[in-house]
Simulated scan of single mutants.
Amino acid sequence: MALLNAKTLRDVRKCVEKYCANYAGGVCILHESPCDYYGKYGHSVSCDYFEQAVLPNEPLLQKAYEEAHGIINAEKEAVKYNVGKCAKCGEAFIKRSNRAKYCGACHAVKQREHNRNYMRKKRSS
């Protein structure tokens, strides 16, 4: 985890004072201790409540905060993988090849069905 620069830390503290429901006079009500961002190591800590509930209210601050802390957006991460939609059940799954049409569970069912039909045809001829 990287350190927040002085400007970002100052903006985070303002945001905590203004929007955080758990902040009361320098104390975090949730943890019953001093707020993480006001301590000696405030530039290098993170608070889950702040990141999930408060930070989304400030998009520019959120971007700077996430860059400093190395937080990866799940949507950006999903782009790295070839995500497909199963043709049978509609579930999203990570495609291991461009030809993949089914998720793991549906693929096994389809494979058995295909093998069954193949053997029927082979036995009848």
Rank of each mutant, 00 (worst) to 15 (best):
D11K: 10
R10P: 07
A78F: 08
N115D: 03
A2C: 07
S44W: 01
V79R: 15
V45D: 13
A2V: 03
I94T: 07
C106N: 11
R13T: 04
V27D: 05
Y49D: 02
Y102D: 00
V27W: 10
R10V: 06
N57A: 14
V54K: 07
V16C: 02
K40H: 11
K7V: 03
A100M: 05
D11R: 10
E113Q: 11
I72F: 13
A24D: 01
P56F: 13
Q52T: 05
C28D: 04
A108D: 11
C103Y: 03
S97I: 01
A53E: 15
S44N: 10
Y81D: 13
A64M: 00
D11V: 05
Q111L: 02
A108P: 09
A78Y: 09
E51F: 04
M119G: 03
V12H: 00
C103S: 08
S97H: 10
E66R: 14
D36W: 09
H107Q: 14
R116V: 11
Y19R: 01
S124C: 13
I94F: 07
E66N: 15
V45C: 09
Y41Q: 11
A68C: 02
R96S: 08
G39K: 10
Q52W: 02
K80R: 12
S125F: 01
K95H: 04
I72E: 15
A108S: 13
Y23F: 14
Y23W: 11
H107N: 14
Y23M: 02
L61G: 07
A2H: 14
K85R: 12
A100Q: 12
G42N: 09
V79D: 15
C20M: 04
N57C: 09
S125V: 02
K7Y: 00
G25P: 04
E51R: 14
N82C: 05
K88F: 09
Q111V: 00
Y19A: 06
Y41R: 11
A64C: 00
Y102I: 00
Y19L: 09
P59A: 15
Y37A: 06
K40Q: 13
A105M: 05
N73V: 01
V54Y: 07
G25I: 02
H43D: 14
R13K: 10
I72K: 15
S97D: 00
H114W: 08
C15M: 06
P56A: 14
M119Q: 12
H43I: 03
Y81E: 12
K14E: 08
L55A: 05
Y37P: 02
K63R: 15
E67P: 05
A105N: 01
N117G: 07
